[in-house]
Design a protein around this nucleic acid. Structure first.
Lengths: 361, 361
DNA sequence: CTGCTCTTCTACAACGATGTAGAGTCGTCG
DNA sequence: CGACGACTCTACATCGTTGTAGAAGAGCAG
C-alpha cells in the first residue's frame, strides 16, 4: 500500500495540511519543519495521489485530444506536437480516436471521459452546419480545422481556401490544365474537404478553366489507400489528368502510387501536390510538393488557448487563430528536384506572422 | 455545476447508495425504484463523476502506453491498435512519449502519472542489463519489444534474432553479398538493435560471409532522417553495398531515399528490406519488402495481459508471448513487383500460431 | 406463530487530498 | 505596555462516489 499524507504527517510529527503545504510550495513554513516533512516523504517514498487531488480541486491537469485516427500520419505528428506542447505547461494529454464517424464524434464531446479532462482539443470531420449546439459544452473547447461553426468557441485554423487555391495555382503555373483533385466529400459545405475544393475550383476559374466533375475524386477517409482508389477510378473513367491535387499528403501519396502502378511518370506525365507537409513526403520518390500548414504552430497555439481557458485566465472573447501556410516544392511537381527535399518555394501568407483576431459571431 | 448522486437521490426520493446501485447495475432493485432513479438521472442530465469513483475504488480504468515517439509511424500505428483493443475492454489509454531517452524512460515508470493509470504497456529503448530492478514497480506492467530482462514481468515480443536473420537470408537468396545494415546501436547487448544485428550477422556467417564493420551503419533514433544519414555515411565511406537491411521501415525508407538521391537503382543496384510492415511501405516507390511482426496481435495481446492483471484475475506466472512474423515481398527486393503491394512471400514462424510460454527466470 | 432466508433499501464511514477558519507565537510600533 | 500584523501551524469539513453493516418487510417452512 502506498504511503499517504497521513503517514508522512505522522512520521514528521506535523498535521496533514502542513504536508500538503510543503508539497504545494506554500511559502510560510519554517525551514526546519519543511526539512522534517521532506525527509519523511523521502523515507516513505511518498507520492501525491493525483486522483484525490483531482476530486478535491475539480481539475485534473489532463486535456483531451480528439482526432480521427493516429495511423493517419498528419494526426500522429500533430499528437506528438500537442503532447510536447502540453508537457511544457505541465499538462497531460488523453488521446481519443473518433474515426471521422459522426456518432463517435458526438460521443467524444459528451462522453464520461470528459470528467477526466479539463478541456478538449477537437478535430472533427463529420460535424456540419446545424451542429453548433453540440459545441455548447460546459468545458473549454478548442476546435482544430476550419472554422466550421460560428459558435462561441476558440478556433485554430488555417486559410484552407487560400492554401488550396495556391496549391492549384502552383500546378497551373507548370502549364497543367487537366488538374484532378482527390479527397472530395460530396455534399459537404463546410469542413476541410469542402473548403479545399472551393479553393481548387476558384483557382481554376481564375485561370479561365471550368471545373470538370470528372476530375473530382471522392475519398471519405483521407488515407493512402483511399487516395489510390480514387485515383484509380479517375483513370479508369478516362479522366486523363495532367496533375493531381491531393487534399492531404496521404491521399497524394496514394494517388502518386497508383499513377506509378499504371506506368505514368510523376511529375512528367502527371504532377502531384499534397497538403500537410508530413515527414513521409520528404523521403518519397519523387519527393512530394505540399502545402505546409504550420502543424507545430497549430499545436502550440491550441494548447496555449486551452491552457489559458482552463487556468481561469480565459473568460474573454473566443479567439480565432489562422496559421500561416507555405508551399514546399519537391520532385512531384519539379523534375529537377526529384529526390531533393521539398524546399519553401512560394510565399507565406498571411504576411509574416500568424493572424489572430476575435472570432466573429 | 453538474448534478451529483445527491441531487438524483433527492429528486427520486431514494438514498444516494440506491442511485449508485442503479448506475452500477446492482440486481436487487424494484423496477419501480429503478425507473424513478433513471427518470431523475435523465431529467438532471446526471453523469457519473469518474474522478470520485476512481478515488473510492482505487482503480481508474486507464492504462498507460509509453512509446518513444508518435511521429514514428510504427508507434503511431501501434498506438492506434492499442487504443482500439483497450476500447474493447472498456479501458482508456494514456500515451506517454519518452523519446528513447533513458532518464525519461525511468521517469515514466515512476512518475506521478502512474497514479492515474492501473497499469502500463511499456516499450523502452534506453534500458539495458542491470536495470531489472527498475521494473520492480508496484503496478501491472507489460513490456513490449525484446525480452531484455528476466524480471517477473509480462513480455510481448517477437523473435527478433530469427526475423532479422530471415530478412538477411532473403537478401542473400537474391545473390547479394555486400549487405549493409542500418540502425546499429554500438555497445548495446540487449534490445532490438542488438538482437536484430545478431540475427543479421548470424545469417551472414551461416552463408560463409564474414560480417564487415564497414557495412554496419549506426543510427540512434530509428527515423527516416537518421536512416538516410547512416546510408550517406556508408556510401561516402566507400562501403559499396549491394543490399541494405533497415532495422525498421523508417530507416529502410530513409536509406532507400538516400540511395535514390545518389542515383542508385533500387532494387537493381541495391536491394532494400525493412522491418515493421508500416502502411507507408505499401505505397513507396518501389514498394518496400519488410518483416511483418504482427503489430495488431502484439497490441491485442499486450492489452489482454494487462487487463487480466488489472482486473484481479492475474496473479499467475509472468507470461512471455512471442508473436509470429512473416516476410512481405515488395519491389525493393523484387524488380517485378516494383509497384505491387508487398505480399506474404515467406514462411511464418513459429509454426502457425503464436507461442505463449511462461517467462523463464 | 416463530425463525429463517431473500429482497430492497438506508445510514454512515471511508478513499486522499485541499480550502477555510482560526489558534498560537513572535516582533514591532505607537 | 498593548495592539497589530505577519508568520506558522492545526482541526475540521469537504469533493462525489462506493463498501459495509444492518434495518425493514415479504415469503415460506416447520
Amino acid at each position: 500500500m502506498a504511503a499517504t499524507m497521513q503517514d508522512v504527517a505522522r512520521l514528521a510529527g506535523v498535521s496533514v495540511k502542513t504536508v500538503s503545504n510543503v508539497v504545494n510550495g506554500y511559502p510560510h513554513i519554517r525551514p526546519a519543519t519543511r526539512d522534517r516533512v521532506l525527509a519523511a516523504i523521502e523515507e516513505l517514498g511518498y507520492q501525491l495521489n493525483l486522483t484525490a487531488r483531482n476530486l478535491r480541486t475539480g481539475r485534473t491537469g489532463i486535456i483531451g485530444l480528439a482526432v480521427p485516427e493516429l495511423s493517419l500520419p498528419y494526426f500522429a505528428e500533430l499528437a506528438d506536437s500537442v503532447i510536447d506542447a502540453a508537457e511544457e505547461c505541465g499538462l497531460t494529454v488523453l488521446i481519443e480516436q473518433h474515426g471521422g464517424r459522426r456518432e463517435r464524434e458526438i460521443e467524444v464531446l459528451t462522453g464520461a471521459r470528459r470528467h477526466l479532462t479539463d478541456g478538449l482539443i477537437y478535430s472533427p470531420l463529420g460535424l456540419g452546419p446545424g451542429d453548433e449546439h453540440l459545441l455548447d459544452v460546459g468545458y473549454p473547447l478548442v476546435l482544430l480545422g476550419e472554422r466550421i461553426f460560428h459558435g462561441p468557441v476558440d478556433h485554430v485554423t488555417m486559410a484552407n481556401v487560400d492554401a488550396a487555391a495556391a496549391a492549384t495555382r502552383h500546378l497551373l503555373a507548370l502549364g497543367r490544365r487537366r488538374i484532378a483533385v482527390v479527397g472530395v466529400h460530396p455534399g459537404e459545405v463546410v469542413g476541410s474537404a469542402a473548403l479545399r475544393l472551393a479553393g481548387y475550383r476558384a483557382a481554376l476559374e481564375e485561370a479561365g478553366i471550368a471545373p470538370d466533375p470528372a476530375l473530382e475524386g471522392e475519398a471519405g477517409l483521407w488515407h493512402r489507400a483511399t487516395g489510390a482508389a480514387a485515383m484509380a477510378r479517375l483513370l479508369d473513367d478516362g479522366a486523363a489528368p495532367d496533375a493531381v491535387f491531393g487534399m492531404n499528403d496521404a491521399l497524394a501519396l496514394g494517388a502518386m502510387h497508383e499513377l506509378q502502378v499504371r506506368g505514368l511518370r510523376v511529375p512528367e506525365d502527371v504532377a502531384v501536390i499534397g497538403f500537410d507537409a508530413i515527414d513521409e513526403g520528404r523521403y518519397s520518390n519523387p519527393t512530394l510538393t505540399t502545402v505546409d500548414p504550420g502543424r507545430e504552430v497549430i499545436a502550440e497555439t491550441a494548447v496555449r488557448l486551452l491552457h489559458e481557458r482552463t487556468s481561469g485566465a480565459g473568460a474573454g472573447e473566443p479567439q480565432l487563430v489562422v496559421a500561416a501556410y507555405r508551399i514546399d516544392v519537391g520532385g512531384s511537381t519539379d523534375p529537377s528536384r526529384r529526390t531533393a527535399s521539398p524546399e519553401p518555394g512560394e510565399t507565406t501568407t498571411p504576411a509574416s506572422d500568424d493572424v489572430e483576431v476575435p472570432a466573429p459571431r
